[in-house]
Design a protein around this nucleic acid. Structure first.
Lengths: 334, 334
DNA sequence: AGTCCGTGTGAAAACGATTACAAAACCTTG
DNA sequence: CAAGGTTTTGTAATCGTTTTCACACGGACT
């Protein structure tokens, strides 16, 4: 099943077989003999050997924090479809929130000679940044806007600002913000700042809005909202960093005997499927997760291809950044 | 950055460096020199070359129909966590419903020398079966019970049977079944048969129950339920093949002016997150998706390890099958 | 002193492909 | 028919590792 075996069977040199497979010049006669030998043996070239020799492998690495998440799997969907089109496979690394693990995957992927890496960003610290900079294969970050890296990310700031303005327009004034860890610049910091910016624009002091930080799931939203309602019984609106948190908050509000949206408005971010069937359905911002994956692949492939022919390290000024737009989806929770 | 370079710098042979890395015998003195050389150069062995030489690669292939699906991503979650523990990476192939693409991925993975393959099963036809049988790396199928292959799957039949019995116990007699493609033995055939078996056990002729076949999403459930309600206005229960379908059906029922569960009972399968916050929350069967992934990996790794030392092809009688239990979750929709 | 064993060592042969190179074979022409 | 060009060919080097093999070096033991 090796190329040599095929060559022997066809009575030619292994170079001829290689040329046959890769479109080199082979006489019609040998071409037929080789074809038959391949047919008989079911020979298929070993990709490991090919990679070792050519240095190229049609694989790209994808590092995610976790796979069981509506947003991540949507991005992955975009990625894998787009890669499949170009005949690439994806080497997946699921790192959790563990920075060290993330770097370990980066190592392994480089050592496997992947053509490029997509990093679904969460946090960034100096050690990691340093490691990312000295990464020798093209890299694209999704979901976060990391200065100096090619990124595809969502407009978290303006999405939440618009949502908050919407709530304010309905006359709600005593809002609370339920956020997630600030170490996540996009979902944590940018979204909170968006909410505060909207307050400021409406002439309200952002400092007066109570802010909590919780986990990404509904349970976190539930606990936070319950706590906030106990502290500030007169709240009439919750701005939540994610839809899941918002849905949890909705439960807490209902549990307290208040009604959504009559007494309290609630908004989330992400446009998750559960938000479409809750009662009331959730007003939220739709983010283009799938598109994010698609764009990340396009960007990566472009860098890969441009790097290939010109060995001259190309222009490092090429670090493009793509900010994806959002869409406010008004449903019943405001 | 190659092993030779390191060897030259340390003043030893490349064999010594290799032994140093892989725990062979190296004198204390050289050990120090090599360590320093590695430190200086930041050398890390090339995995492609290692694979070529040793034949082993710590990667396993995973082929899924699509990644953006609550069940699939949950299984993947179990898989990737379990693999990470054992220091394996996953090579992902997203095949859609395209059988040919599935086989193409199988090819590529074999040619990449993956240690094993997990196939998230959907359909099975003779061509594919033949190809799977002659697959030269260990293979495990999840989600389906394919005779003759090692499988980890859910007890779809009894789950739906139990759900249907539950609905019948509440006095509902005029049920309809909304299913998915019968080409999917597990989610299509087995679940429908479970529903019919429950009817039979209750002394009702299964043939009297209208059955439709639709897509896996809520839209499909919505259309089907609307159609069924038009045809049979006296229906008082829907057994749905998946939660998403059930939630779609719930919308259709509500749209028709009927109430759930007062007028019509609805059940689904899968225990998806949206079902917990719908109004009313959905009665369903919880399937152990995550566990499915974990067990699949355990099974695969076991086969890989047993195959490794004994070159003697081992016992092919080892095709274990694991049937995962289900749990009925009674919420408000019955 | 000779034998035996265990540990360290480097040269060289794999692993399975691609490709540079030079030789051979085949055409066109003048 | 000779000269010059184009297409086919096989040999051998290469990619970066691991591993076999033979050998050298010390003891420990007869």
């Amino acid at each position: 099943m090796t190329i040599k075996e095929v060559a022997r069977l066809a009575g030619v040199s292994s170079a001829a077989v290689s040329r046959y497979m890769n479109g080199g010049s082979v006489s019609e006669e040998k071409r037929a003999r080789i074809a038959r030998a391949i047919e008989e043996t079911g020979y298929r070239p070993d990709m490991t050997a090919q990679t070792l020799r050519t240095g190229r492998v049609r694989q790209i690495g994808v590092i995610v924090p976790k796979i069981f998440s509506e947003s991540v799997s949507q991005i992955m969907d975009g990625i894998s479809e787009c890669l499949a089109e170009k005949n690439y496979m994806t080497l997946l690394g699921c790192a959790g929130i563990d920075d060290a693990q993330e770097i370990r995957y980066l190592d392994i992927m480089e050592r496997n000679r992947v053509a490029g890496i997509i990093l679904m960003g969460t946090t960034m610290d100096p050690v990691k940044e340093k490691r990312l900079r000295e990464c020798r294969v093209p890299l694209v970050v999704t979901g976060q806007n990391f200065e100096g890296f090619p990124c595809v990310y969502h407009d978290d700031f303006h999405a939440v600002k618009a949502l908050t303005s919407l709530v304010l327009e309905k006359g709600r004034r005593r809002l609370a913000y339920i956020g997630v860890t600030e170490r996540d610049f996009a979902a944590g910091k940018a979204r909170r700042e968006g909410a505060q910016a909207a307050l400021l624009a409406a002439g309200i002091d952002p400092e007066t809005m109570p802010c909590t930080e919780t986990s990404f799931d509904a349970e976190g939203g539930f606990q936070s909202a319950r706590f906030l309602l106990a502290q500030h019984p007169d709240l009439d609106g919750f701005i939540c960093a994610t839809d899941n948190v918002a849905l949890g908050a909705m439960m807490a509000v209902r549990e307290s005997g208040r009604s959504v949206p009559a007494d309290v408005s609630i908004v989330g971010v992400g446009d998750c499927w559960a938000g479409t069937i809750s009662a009331p359905p959730l007003t939220t911002a739709h983010l283009r997760y799938r598109q994010c994956g698609v764009d990340a692949v396009r960007m990566l492939l472009q860098r890969i291809e441009q790097e290939d022919p010109e060995q001259g390290e190309a222009q490092p000024s090429q670090i493009r950044q793509i900010r994806l737009p959002y869409t406010i989806i008004e449903r019943g929770s405001v």
